[in-house]
Design a binder for these strands. Structure first.
Lengths: 192, 192
DNA sequence: CGACTGACAGATATTGAAATCTGTCAGTGC
DNA sequence: GCACTGACAGATTTCAATATCTGTCAGTCG
């Protein structure tokens, strides 16, 4: 047939476009269905709820936004430098999305505000990457011993200013990069 | 006369009670005037606007909540211990207010959200206290050299999880104190 | 059979009219 | 004279009626 069956991927793609156009406050399931040329009941045959659809869109979006991070975490740089690089990449990705894709960023922020399970998972994944870098630094003797998992959580938390979307308005201030360097400097000294 | 003239202090006291009773979203200048037994025009003879009144109430409230901090900052403890003590006192004060005085805490949070000048001042005052402790630690040789003012800002920022009202919902989680200790531990190591 | 439809109930959002609030100021009275 | 009043204009909020949306499901159609 010319018209293949509607796939979850089609719906996610269209739902993302609808969210980008109307923003999370205005986008409706009916809008998504209309854009797909189907009835909204059809959307519900693929996703159990509007919340589930929104989460799936945001998961895809986050995965794409942070695609570079696992590579950095698993890379060959010296662990201190790697940690700095990873944090800088995380910050850059967040900054870029907040500016260049504000509606999807806002959608993501809504999920953060709702303590969505997706966000918890996402954060845990990032903390695990941090813990991995720290663990390797400890093995190589450049970082002090300690619970790497806990330290990963702590490093994520103390750098919240540069990735927590609640602080997004401050990311365009002129001295953020100086502050970022100062914070990362303190953190690296604290880990050594 | 039996009835002394209405003082700004009377108004602040009553406005605080009205805010505590109705919360920042519902409290009105008319409510405050009614509680004082005067017309609302009178309130405007003492405060130029509702925003100014709200700020003045919050300033008084913040000053009382953090009354213990300057004493700790100027105390005789070893600087590392003093810093830990000061941060713990700040955290304890915020935690206590969030739980025991939620409407005033919410009022404060509204001002934070509005980037009120009061909040900037308040934060600067706290950062100055931190910078003072750090400077003394540097003089005594227990902290490494560096721009103490900047380090004060950095320490305030990395501990945001424990004083920024946006994180208040997390302050009742069971493991906050462990996290607090871990963060302060990392910060102290980073300063040494 | 299985993907899709569309009518439906209850929940949520929008709208516009009415009520209330903020901020001003000429006037009252001690 | 000076602290306070109260009526007022414009802005904001409330409220209830209306419309739209979410989620379900019996039914259609290929």
């Amino acid at each position: 047939m010319a018209e293949a069956a509607l796939t979850p991927e089609d719906i996610l793609q269209t739902a993302e476009e609808v969210l980008r156009r109307y923003g999370p406050a205005k986008a409706t399931v009916v809008d998504v269905a209309r854009a797909l040329g189907v009835s909204h009941g059809t959307v519900y045959r693929h996703f159990p709820s509007k919340a589930a659809l929104r989460e799936a869109v945001t998961r895809r979006w986050l995965d794409r936004a942070h695609a570079a991070l696992p590579g950095i975490a698993a890379g060959q740089e010296e662990p201190g430098e790697r940690l700095r690089h990873w944090l800088a990449a995380l910050f850059a990705a967040k900054q870029e999305k907040a500016l260049a894709d504000p509606e999807l960023f806002e959608t993501y922020q809504v999920l953060v505000g709702e303590n969505s399970a997706l966000i918890t998972e996402h954060v845990t994944g990032l903390e695990d990457q941090l813990a991995g870098i720290i663990r390797e630094g400890q093995t190589q003797g450049v970082f002090a011993q300690g619970d790497a998992q806990m330290l990963g959580r702590v490093v994520f938390q103390v750098t919240a200013h540069f990735h927590d979307p609640g602080y997004a308005p401050e990311w365009s201030r002129p001295d953020v990069d100086t502050e970022f360097d100062a914070v990362v400097g303190l953190v690296l000294k604290g880990l050594m």
